[in-house]
Amino acid sequence: TIDEIIKALEQAVKDNKPIQVGNYTVTSADEAEKLAKKLKKEY
């Protein structure tokens, strides 16, 4: 679900690790936030 994706992003940001979500690779908190907002609009 979208919530699980967002939790995974938040965890990756805390661990400061890049995370791959679908076609996106998120490497920073800023990118994670942008991706989360984008995904919320889509779903």
Rank of each mutant, 00 (worst) to 15 (best):
V13A: 14
E31H: 02
L39I: 08
D30G: 08
V13D: 01
T25A: 09
K34S: 11
E33D: 12
V26H: 01
A32R: 00
I2N: 03
L35M: 05
D3E: 14
K37H: 10
A8E: 05
D15Q: 10
A12L: 09
A29L: 07
T25N: 13
D30V: 13
K38M: 13
A32T: 01
L35D: 01
A32H: 00
Y24G: 10
T27W: 09
T25Q: 14
V13Q: 05
K7T: 07
E10V: 07
T27N: 15
A12P: 01
G22M: 04
D30W: 10
G22Q: 03
K7Q: 10
I6N: 01
I19E: 01
I19H: 02
L9E: 03
K40N: 05
N16V: 02
T27K: 06
Q20P: 02
A29N: 03
V13M: 14
A8I: 12
E4K: 07
K17P: 01
K14D: 05
A36K: 05
E10L: 12
Q11E: 08
I6A: 01
E33M: 12
L35N: 01
L35Y: 01
V26S: 04
E10A: 07
G22E: 07
V21Q: 02
I2Y: 11
V21S: 01
V26L: 03
V13F: 10
V21Y: 06
Q20W: 09
K17C: 06
E10Y: 10
K34E: 14
K7F: 08
D3L: 15
K7A: 13
A32G: 03
E4S: 09
K38E: 13
E33P: 00
Y24K: 12
A12E: 00
K40M: 12
T25E: 15
N16W: 13
I19W: 01
D15S: 09
L9H: 00
Q20F: 09
K41P: 07
D15T: 08
D15E: 13
A32K: 03
L39T: 01
A8G: 04
I6E: 00
K37P: 01
Y43T: 10
D30K: 09
I6L: 12
D3C: 15
A36W: 07
D3T: 12
K41F: 11
P18G: 13
E10M: 13
T1N: 10
L9N: 01
Y43C: 15
L35E: 02
A8T: 06
K14S: 09
V21F: 10
Y24W: 12
G22H: 06
K37L: 09
V21P: 01
E10S: 03
